[in-house]
Design a protein around this nucleic acid. Structure first.
Length: 150
DNA sequence: GCCAACGTTGGC
DNA sequence: GCCAACGTTGGC
């Protein structure tokens, strides 16, 4: 069992959207490190902190769960998609994704500013300088500490 | 809208 | 293989 944080812009796909969808393929990740976490690190049942980014109140807003093993992101083959990648082929797909299932919405947003104030979250990948990864690992200790703030 | 950070691209 | 240019992310 491992833990992760996945970012989404709420204008594009929010925790409420996930609550309605119940399960969603996490399309559009086009960063190799993030892809590798999904492809090599994630397993069904892993915990996911759902994070809202690029919005008035960035922070952790809910809990989700990895719901599939990694498989090729279909949008990379779709010429009409913003995520189309002409260099990727079905025989040798470049981009992978997992399905993410809704677990619950937090009672409140645990804001980025609040996370930054937590001495025990020193070293947390989300808080590292210049970090832009949209999928990143969370330790069990970090997971417990963050959720205890709720 | 600004800008720092940083990944990717492409010329050489 | 270097590195400048460029594009994107994401907080503010």
């Amino acid at each position: 069992m491992h833990y992760w944080l996945m970012k989404s812009e709420p204008d594009a796909f929010s925790i409420d959207d996930l609550a309605r969808a119940k399960t969603e393929p996490w399309t559009g990740v086009r960063n190799y490190q993030a892809r590798n976490f999904m492809r090599d690190g994630m397993h069904v049942g892993d915990g996911v902190l759902f994070y809202h980014s690029s919005c008035p109140e960035p922070g952790v807003v809910g809990i989700a769960e990895v719901a599939s093993d990694a498989y090729p992101d279909p949008t990379q083959f779709d010429r009409k998609s913003d995520y189309y990648d002409e260099k990727s082929t079905p025989e040798n797909p470049r981009w992978m994704l997992v399905d993410v299932a809704f677990k619950r919405k937090l009672g409140r947003t645990i804001g980025l500013d609040e996370l930054k104030q937590q001495a025990r979250l020193e070293g947390f990948a989300l808080l590292q300088r210049g970090n832009r990864l949209s999928v990143l690992p969370v330790t069990k200790a970090q997971w417990s500490h963050i959720l205890a703030l709720e």
